[in-house]
């Protein structure tokens, strides 16, 4: 266990250096990955694990894949999903897929052994925290995926990492007990059936201790991210959000996914999906 921790730490230090030098191997590829596991977590959420034949390039929290849902021939474009976990040794990536419409539904019906065409890794990741940072991760819905990935590889001690997960009801929360050793986990549900009652922004950690955090990261429904961003902005705290604008290509050529930012229309798929709230034009 200690060896693993040391390895993760070393890897993160390396990542940070490579990243600072901007020479990180971010070559995008399109490849057929083998679905090796598909687990239903609750009514609408599935955990899909895909394996690559070749070694994976470096992948960071916030980055995503663009998946062709070939089985649903009526679906023309690919569907983007955040990367929730990477296992370099076994060359696998995990995705948390929430059923929204036809594409996500058919994707969750794939069975292990089938091949899935995936373009990855795409997008710019979250800024990794510094060794002494106290960080707050806020995830809602399938937005927990990149938060979990960040918690796992940020290289911080568990007491530095706090994560609030929001959902409508207890049954909408996915079981993430395996992350318990990595972070302090808190829950909020709209109906009060698990953790605090209300939105993530009603959680006492958020309402009373926000300023104790050096970095705040969030991914989830727009209204949730905006509510988080608003409080962080007021207090001039570092805050990054991960946007989910609809995409056609996912790799920066169609210019369909733009977000109106202080630097003009920027592609969410290449300049994002992670943005610092100071760069956005949200009315917060």
């Amino acid at each position: 266990m200690q060896q693993v921790a040391a390895f993760i730490l070393l890897r993160n230090i390396l990542h940070r250096i490579i990243f600072a030098l901007k020479s990180v191997n971010m070559r995008k590829t399109v490849s057929d990955l083998l679905l090796i596991d598909n687990k239903q977590l609750n009514k609408d959420n599935f955990l899909l694990k895909l394996q690559s034949k070749t070694p994976l390039s470096d992948i960071f929290p916030g980055q995503f894949v663009n998946v062709e849902i070939k089985k649903a021939t009526e679906i023309f474009l690919r569907r983007p999903f955040s990367i929730m976990d990477v296992d370099y040794e076994n060359r696998t990536i995990s995705l948390l897929v929430k059923i929204l419409g036809r594409g996500s539904k058919v994707f969750t019906e794939y069975i292990p052994g089938e091949l899935v065409s995936v373009i990855f890794p795409l997008g710019k990741p979250f800024t990794l925290p510094l060794p002494n940072d106290r960080i707050l991760l806020i995830g809602g819905g399938s937005g927990v995926a990149p938060m979990l990935f960040l918690a796992k590889i940020c290289g911080l001690k568990p007491e530095q990492v706090h994560m609030i997960l929001g959902a409508r009801s207890a049954t909408d929360h996915v079981d993430i007990s395996e992350y318990e050793g990595l972070a302090n986990l808190y829950y909020a549900t709209e109906d009060g059936s698990k953790g605090e009652k209300g939105f993530v922004t009603h959680h006492p950690l958020f309402t009373h201790q926000l300023e104790s955090f050096d970095k705040i990261y969030t991914c989830g429904p727009d209204p949730m991210m905006k509510a988080v961003a608003k409080e962080a902005y007021k207090r001039k705290l570092f805050c990054e959000v991960s946007l989910e604008n609809t995409m056609a290509c996912g790799f920066g050529v169609c210019l369909c996914c733009v977000e109106d930012t202080k630097h003009g229309n920027l592609c969410v798929c290449t300049e994002g999906p992670v943005f610092n709230i100071n760069d956005l034009k949200w009315q917060i």
Binding site: M247, C256, V258
Partner: peptide, 23 residues
């Protein structure tokens, strides 16, 4: 040119609509 505002894309049967507007 900044192009048009988001949303600029709609998926359609066997195709898509775009309204990028020459960004």
């Amino acid at each position: 040119r900044e192009g048009n505002s988001y949303p600029r894309m709609a998926e359609t049967p066997s195709g898509m609509l775009n309204a990028v507007g020459l960004q």
